[in-house]
Amino acid sequence: MAPGRILRILGVAVLLVLAGCAHRPQPSDINDICVVFEENPEWYDHARRSEERWGTPIPIQMAFVHQESSFIADARPPRRRLLGFIPWRRPSSAYGYAQAQDPVWGEYREDAGHWDAHRTRMRDALDFIGWYNQRTRERVGVDLDDPRRLYLAYHEGHGGYRQGSYRQKPTLQRVVRNVEARARRYEEQLAGCEDDLQCWRWYQFWPFCR
């Protein structure tokens, strides 16, 4: 094979790999779950599979992602500033759609058997949220349809939740109320568009895609 053709083939291969690694853009309206899913219909499939596996309702999963990353795949906490202007370390290792930190992400990959999971991939982020909330139910007895208490345990960790560390954090209390309200709003919105989302692939048709 001619060297020029080999280079062209390698170039195409590199472009395909880069395209596969590219992050999805933020949905045009992150406050409307129907828009989020219409623009990213496979996200609905991922959320539904996570709900079936772990039990957290789809609206609660997506409300967590909204709060944690605003649907930005490679979101990270902003860096601290040394002397007020020098970029310094980040406050935590939180990363990706679910803002999972390194230690608990490692636990998830081992416990759930997802060694190839990536925090910048929605499928894995939603499965992680479902897995973590299931552990919250098992360890501290929070119902999976209670977004307020689930998010408190998600933010503070199970130990912090047991100790009530959130009681001294008024900003977190406001965040929790927002997560709860968004989950309820997403629930209402999803009721009006879920039938269409269940049959979006060309080979899916009622009643077999429900």
Results as ranks from 00 to 15, higher is better:
I6V: 13
N178V: 04
Y108C: 00
D195P: 07
V142C: 03
R80F: 12
V175N: 02
P25K: 01
D29S: 11
D102V: 12
Q61R: 03
V36K: 07
R81V: 11
V65I: 15
I30T: 15
P103W: 08
F208S: 08
R89N: 12
R48G: 05
N31I: 00
R80I: 01
T120N: 08
E52N: 12
D143V: 01
Q168A: 13
T56R: 05
G20Q: 08
G84Y: 13
C34L: 09
F128H: 08
E138G: 10
A75K: 11
I86W: 15
Y108E: 01
C34W: 13
A117T: 01
A125F: 07
G130I: 06
L126Q: 10
W206S: 11
R177W: 01
G141C: 05
R174P: 02
E52Q: 11
R162V: 15
Y161F: 14
G141M: 06
L82A: 12
D32F: 00
N31W: 06
A2P: 13
N40I: 07
V142G: 05
S28E: 08
R5H: 08
Y132C: 04
A94S: 10
A47D: 05
A47S: 15
R185G: 10
Q163D: 12
Y132K: 06
I129H: 02
G55K: 04
W131F: 11
I9C: 05
P25A: 12
F71E: 08
W115G: 13
Y108Q: 03
L15T: 15
R123W: 13
I72A: 03
P91T: 05
H158L: 12
I129M: 03
P207F: 04
A100N: 07
V175I: 12
P103Y: 10
H46Y: 15
N133V: 03
R8T: 09
V17C: 08
R119Q: 09
G55M: 04
M1C: 09
D74E: 10
P25R: 02
R162Y: 12
Y151L: 01
G192M: 06
H23P: 00
E194T: 13
V176D: 01
C21T: 09
T171W: 15
G106R: 10
F64N: 06
R109Y: 01
W43A: 07
R89T: 14
P59T: 01
W131T: 14
W206M: 08
N178C: 03
E68P: 09
E110L: 06
S93L: 09
D116L: 01
W115V: 12
A19K: 01
T120R: 06
A183T: 06
Y95L: 06
D196N: 11
G164P: 13
R90H: 05
F85R: 06
I72Q: 13
R148S: 04
R201Q: 14
T120D: 14
